[in-house]
């Protein structure tokens, strides 16, 4: 069952077209990768899916209801995390999660905050102000915030971009485990094919605002004509070789 349908979505800023007539869907329990280079239109798409950016054209439907007409109802069940956003920096981790919890209908508010603090290894940081945290720690708080309302759809904009490899791995495994347990859907933007391959059930490849492929990571890897292979040679230098 499709939980999110995007139809002919377009976003123009003056003469520049950031997102060009894209259509895709997200199934229940699916992790969909939105893959593409910087400036491809991934973040713009996420912003339109969150209702903070009005599309020039096209339609976004969650649970078969238009986002434009049912914003409050839909956003109760949707959340997001982005490497490019911040949380109020003078508030502590706990305060940020607490006030955010009031933005959503949650019965067990205190328990939820406590559980997320444990899940995202934030226990030592709860009394720290956001300005004191490293970028990796901020990302973990952002992710915890994204889980606060038991979302049915989670939009993650490069969620592991500022994390160290160990924490990235932990977060990837955590998200997959949570998805398997609660069957929510995720859109995961990245420009890292290896990550997308590990996490996503399906990948939409986007470039210059257009969808150029929509398939499983395995099939997509076979159909892409040009791939970049990173070779680590014995002298320690990283060299990129393009093969067709």
């Amino acid at each position: 069952m499709d939980i999110l349908t995007v139809k002919n979505l377009t976003k123009k800023f003056g003469k520049f077209t950031a997102v060009n007539n894209i259509s895709f869907s997200l199934r229940e329990g699916e992790i969909l990768g939105l893959l593409g280079p910087n400036g491809a239109g991934k973040t713009t798409t996420i912003q339109m899916l969150l209702g903070v950016l009005t599309p020039t054209q096209g339609e976004v439907k969650y649970f078969n209801k238009s986002l434009q007409d049912n914003r409050e109802e839909i956003l109760e069940k949707v959340n997001f995390s982005s490497t490019y956003t911040q949380l109020p920096w003078l508030l502590t981790v706990e305060e940020n999660l607490t006030y955010t919890s009031y933005l959503y209908k949650i019965k067990d508010r205190k328990q939820r905050v406590k559980k997320l603090i444990e899940a995202f290894r934030l226990k030592k940081l709860i009394k720290e102000q956001m300005k004191e945290l490293s970028s990796g720690e901020v990302t973990r708080v952002n992710l915890a915030k994204a889980f606060i309302n038991y979302p049915k759809v989670l939009l993650l904009d490069e969620p592991t971009a500022s994390l160290d490899p160990e924490t990235s791995d932990y977060i990837r495994k955590f998200l997959i485990k949570e998805r398997n347990q609660f069957n929510f859907s995720i859109i995961w933007t990245s420009h890292n094919m290896a990550e997308v391959e590990e996490v996503c059930d399906r990948v939409v490849f986007i470039n210059h605002g257009k969808i150029i492929a929509d398939d499983t990571p395995e099939k997509l890897a076979k159909t892409i004509e040009v791939c970049h292979v990173v070779l680590n040679v014995p002298d320690g230098l990283k060299r990129t070789v393009e093969i067709c």
Binding site: G51, E72, T85, L103
Partner: peptide, 18 residues
């Protein structure tokens, strides 16, 4: 302005807040 300086507008308006 606090929300603007904190880049927090997206967080609050991506929630059901009207």
């Amino acid at each position: 302005l606090e929300e603007v300086w904190n880049k927090n507008l997206i967080n609050i308006f991506a929630s059901p807040l009207t």
